[in-house]
């Protein structure tokens, strides 16, 4: 039987007065490249944030390879939404990527040569090495997203969570990111992506979770990515011809 990388049991999350995720059960097998899709306000980002402990759930439990997240931080990397940070912050691309090493360093210890080397390698991988000393506000949207990706790569994790990595990026960057994601999967990593563009789901991903406050369906793209589930998720009669 294949290993379960991330398990979510009976997860319920409420923001202020409004419930946003209800009784979610998920078992994400190791080595999949999974998209989380659903309409706006379906709780896609919230699901990731709850798994990562950024938001406290009201009920439910999370397992990363069967253990609580707190004990497994080293196995997990996170790419937040690009808009969640202040890009005018006085720092360079290399500096941001170095932040990916802070988790393994722990409190107070400073990054050294090994961390810098890892950061440079990650920058190379996303094609941003020439921009390493660039101030982050002077990067394009696509370049900023690559920097975020590189920061996650530095964490050298087993599971990657990404919140809308394709939002506001150019076509070249999108292709580059997809290639990196596929490469990650090839090396046995698990990648979980909050995704918006339904058209590209079959092309980019092999696993999909439909989410709209409740979990609608989860499984391989080839078997569950169909009009029926899309309609259930998006409410209105959803007809897109996705078979290419």
């Amino acid at each position: 039987m294949e290993k379960i990388a991330v398990s979510v049991d009976d997860l319920t999350v409420a923001y202020n007065y409004k419930p946003v995720l209800w009784d979610i059960d998920l078992a994400i097998p190791e080595g999949v490249l999974m998209a989380i899709v659903g309409p706006n306000g379906a709780g896609k980002s919230t699901l990731i944030k709850a798994i990562l402990g950024i938001i406290d759930p009201i009920a439910g439990s999370i397992g990363i390879y069967g253990k609580p997240y707190e004990d497994q931080r080293q196995k997990v990397a996170y790419v937040p939404q690009k808009g969640s940070v202040d890009w005018d912050f006085p720092t360079t691309a290399l500096d941001v990527v170095m932040m990916g090493t802070y988790g393994s360093l722990g409190w107070i210890k400073r990054p050294g040569k090994a961390q810098k080397k890892a950061a440079l390698e990650a920058l190379e991988k996303v094609g941003m090495l020439p921009f390493k000393n660039r101030q982050i506000s002077q990067l394009s949207g696509g370049q900023q997203q690559r920097i975020f990706l590189a920061r996650a790569l530095v964490q050298n994790a087993a599971i990657y969570f990404m919140d809308e990595p394709f939002q506001g990026v150019d076509a070249t960057t999108e292709k580059a990111i997809v290639n990196i994601l596929k490469e990650l999967r090839k090396t046995g990593k698990t990648v979980i992506v909050v995704h918006h563009d339904l058209q590209t789901v079959p092309e980019y991903f092999d696993w999909v979770t439909f989410l709209n406050v409740k979990k609608i369906a989860t499984g391989p793209v080839s078997t569950i990515f169909n009009d029926d589930n899309l309609t259930k998720t998006y409410g209105i009669n959803y007809k897109v011809s996705l078979q290419q």
């Binding site: 402990g53 950024i54 931080r73 997990v76 969640s84 940070v85 202040d86 932040m99 802070y102």
Partner: peptide, 11 residues
Amino acid sequence: FDADYTKTLGF
């Protein structure tokens, strides 16, 4: 720079 990320790293 990034408060949420800081949390995920265990700080």
